[in-house]
Design a binder for these strands. Structure first.
Lengths: 166, 166
DNA sequence: CGTTACTTTCATTTATTTCAGAAAGCTGCG
DNA sequence: CGCAGCTTTCTGAAATAAATGAAAGTAACG
């Protein structure tokens, strides 16, 4: 496989992976493209490379910047904006964890708290309370674990997990 | 909040969470409904409760069974099939991890292997190789970590993570 | 100022996903 | 058989999400 084929395949696969991770296909592809670019790219270069419209490119670049996965880079003497991706995989994963945690886990914990107040003396009521308690226990644990993870640096992560998995 | 309101809210929230996890809304709601039911439910009861069609119910129950999140239960003397959910949260999460790993991580690892063969003497070629190597490293680590996790039992998980996060 | 070189927004269009309901498949029983 | 009682599969319709392209907005520079 040559470099060009490899790049195409990578863009393709990263896009597919992204779409099952709450990141839309194009957003993931832009990220992939920037990941494997030696230089910062302009919006026009991204549009050209991925064959997408200006609007689409802009919106997704913006979203990636919000997530903290991509940064603006201004070249002296150029009026265009250029973009670079965060290339440290551990940082990338941390960003994604933070976003998903915020969007999913935290709202869920809030709902679970409300649901804990349900009290009813019946078989159904008991089962309900049990399930909610279990999920809450599990979610809080996940929440604090993720907090710790996202505060940790790469070496700590590698070290701890390596020990953990023997 | 009374039990009925609580149930509705739970069905609602679990459905929303599911849909950002590659599990479709209805599938997640059926799972939620079974989770909080003291008794096994029939397809008809599920249709009634969630106001969904027979076809929809059937397809999603089937999918849940495939995933290992729901089991058939045959009541003696009844021709209907009844369904119960796996209620141990740790088992539930393990199921989901296994499915997602199979659907996402493993294909990605395969692609990365192919992409490792790309060799080209240029700045771009170098960056590409570097990125692929990093992702591969990270993914393999994630892969073996998840393997260990899914083989572990609940107590081990709780213990290790509690230690890990102080 | 006003022109130029971009960036951002937004109403439409287009693609994807999900669902209801009809039709077809089983299974067991008389 | 053939009918009753369920389960499964399929297809077109409806809902949802994403992309386009043109118009509006901004900022640097003479």
């Amino acid at each position: 496989m040559n470099l060009e084929e490899g790049k195409q395949k990578f863009l393709q696969s990263w896009g597919a992976l992204g779409s099952s991770w709450g990141i839309n296909r194009t957003m993931a592809q832009i990220h992939a493209l920037l990941l494997i670019s030696a230089e910062a790219l302009s919006a026009d270069q991204i549009m050209e490379e991925l064959q997408i419209s200006r609007g689409n490119a802009n919106m997704n670049i913006r979203a990636l910047i919000d997530w903290g996965l991509v940064f603006k880079e201004l070249k002296p003497g150029e009026r265009k904006e250029f973009f670079v991706a965060e290339k440290d995989m551990w940082e990338v994963v941390k960003c994604i964890i933070v976003q998903r945690k915020k969007r999913e886990l935290e709202p869920m914990l809030k709902v679970l708290d409300e649901l804990s107040s349900v009290q009813e003396e019946s078989k159904d009521g008991e089962v309900f309370a049990d399930v909610i308690r279990d999920i809450k226990l599990f979610s809080s644990k996940a929440d604090s674990t993720l907090d710790t993870l996202t505060k940790a640096d790469s070496n700590w992560f590698v070290g701890t997990f390596m020990k953990m998995i023997r």
